Amino acid sequence: MFNITLKGANRLDIEFSGQLDSDDMKAMLDELVKKSESMNNGRMLYRIGEFDWPTLGAIGVELSRLPELFRMIRRFDKVAVIAEQGWVRTASKLEGALIPGLDIKAFEPAQESEAQAWLAR
């Protein structure tokens, strides 16, 4: 399950849980790209619930769209990831280190107010 909500001109909130198959991944990426089209210096709040690895088909969809996703991610300066699972928070930090110009910070669910404040700065 996923939900992408536009929260102002330069803010997206994404909620995700469960497992994505190829159709879900395509729909999620289409919506993400569309809702972020006009953003500059964007902020993203990413809430990740119980996470199951995507199917191989979903991973294939994501890999096939990497150039488009790299263009889209340049629209954002900050991403706050809220996740219960420690390994998801660690993976988010590593991803932030690999993408120049994008600051990713991970938070536990009890730290949502800190995540919101960090994004607002």
Rank of each mutant, 00 (worst) to 15 (best):
W53E: 10
R47K: 14
T90F: 07
G60T: 02
G86P: 05
K93H: 12
D77T: 13
L66N: 08
I73R: 13
E84Y: 12
T90K: 06
L94F: 14
R89P: 03
E95Y: 09
V88P: 05
V88T: 11
P67L: 09
G60I: 01
E68Q: 15
A58H: 07
W53N: 08
I82Y: 03
W53L: 09
E62R: 10
K93D: 06
E62A: 14
K93N: 11
R71A: 15
L56N: 00
L94R: 08
V88I: 15
G57K: 04
V81G: 04
I48V: 15
S64T: 11
S92C: 01
E84P: 04
R71M: 12
Q85R: 12
R65I: 11
A58I: 07
V79C: 13
Q85L: 10
E68D: 14
V88H: 03
I48F: 08
G60F: 00
V79M: 14
L94C: 12
E62Q: 12
E62L: 08
F76H: 06
D77F: 00
F70M: 14
G86C: 02
I73C: 02
S92V: 01
K93V: 04
Y46T: 06
I59N: 01
L66Y: 13
S92T: 01
A83G: 09
F51L: 11
R47S: 10
R65V: 10
P54R: 01
A91H: 03
L69E: 13
W53H: 07
E84K: 14
Q85T: 14
R65M: 13
E95H: 07
S64C: 04
T55W: 04
M72Q: 14
A83L: 11
A80Q: 07
G86L: 09
R71I: 09
W53G: 07
G57Y: 00
T90A: 14
L56G: 03
F70P: 03
A91I: 06
G57R: 01
Y46L: 10
R47F: 12
R89I: 06
R71T: 15
I59C: 01
L63V: 13
F70I: 11
S92I: 02
V81Y: 02
R71D: 15
W87D: 01
D77G: 09
G60N: 02
L69R: 14
Q85S: 13
K78H: 03
Q85P: 08
R75K: 15
L66H: 10
L66C: 05
I59Q: 07
V88R: 03
I48P: 06
R74Y: 10
F76K: 09
G60K: 05
T90W: 08
W87S: 03
R89Q: 11
A58P: 05
